[in-house]
Amino acid sequence: MGSISLRNVRKSFGTTDVIPGIDLDIEDGEFVVFVGPSGCGKSTLLRLIAGLEDTTGGRILIDGKDVSDAPPAKRGLAMVFQSYALYPHMSVYKNIAFPLKMDSQAKDVIDKKVREAARVLNLTDYLERRPGQLSGGQRQRVAIGRAIVRQPGAFLFDEPLSNLDAALRGTMRIEISELHQHLKTTMVYVTHDQIEAMTMADKIVVLNAGRIEQVGSPLDLYRTPANLFVAGFIGSPRMNMIEGAEAGKMQAKTIGFRPEHIRLSQTDGAWSGTVGVAEHLGSDTLLHIDSDEFGPITARADGDFVVKSGQRVFMTPDKARMHRFDEKGLAIR
């Protein structure tokens, strides 16, 4: 009902290749997140799937059918836009009903579906309001409501939470995940926020400069990044990267340790350094250490590990969880 396949999909604007050629399979019912830095082509890829942009080459298949030349409405997809793109002159009710009206469905059917969607999304009390009278979170839910009433083969989300504040983003993240569990419909979600990617995705697609760097489950990407880019992009705070003699000892160009995989001590350890800034988060403490050997290193310590700025500390990396990369930046396994 909602599998999407990309076969050597290409897109160029004028002479610049935004997407040089992508192959990807999205299974029915999967929650797939496209993540990457801004300008990596993730939104363009989503708009190609939606049909809002024409492909320069390659084929897009939905449920095995080639839709490369089909208009957006004929692809059976629904999209939630970054700006929500609600119709400002229509009430919430009419906004949600709009796709059904375009589908020429019966009035009572439309009414039933709109009210059901409103109930699921807690919008029942706001049905007569205009979008301008709603908060950001409510607008977001109206946009989602407009998408779900169509019962599409797949949902497309284009950075839907980027206009919300941090707290609301947290709750909407959970709401969308719950919606996915409830509907079991394919969802393709674009974000630049790796926390959204890690928490929501079944499968993450890491994009960089129009190319897929790696595809995998959140934990796959965290545990076994395929290359330096993914290693640096996934995980917060960033993985510590060390080059030079220390890496050479491990037969690698670059070695990487996540901040949480460094054991700290005030008495002894493999490396030493001076604490610059200590960020006490309560549950744990992030230490920005100026190491004697390799410059700045970030380490995550237990919340009980009390150090102050300027204090000396010793660090011992967990060698079992070390990542090694060759000259081309590819992981050595």
Binding site: A50, L52, P71, P72, A73, L77, A78, M79, F81, Q82, S83, A85, L86, Y87, P88, F98, P99, M102, D103, R146, R150
Partner: peptide
Amino acid sequence: IPGEILEAARMDGAS
């Protein structure tokens, strides 16, 4: 008039 609104209408199946 934001372009996204027109795109939304097209996604919603409006001719």
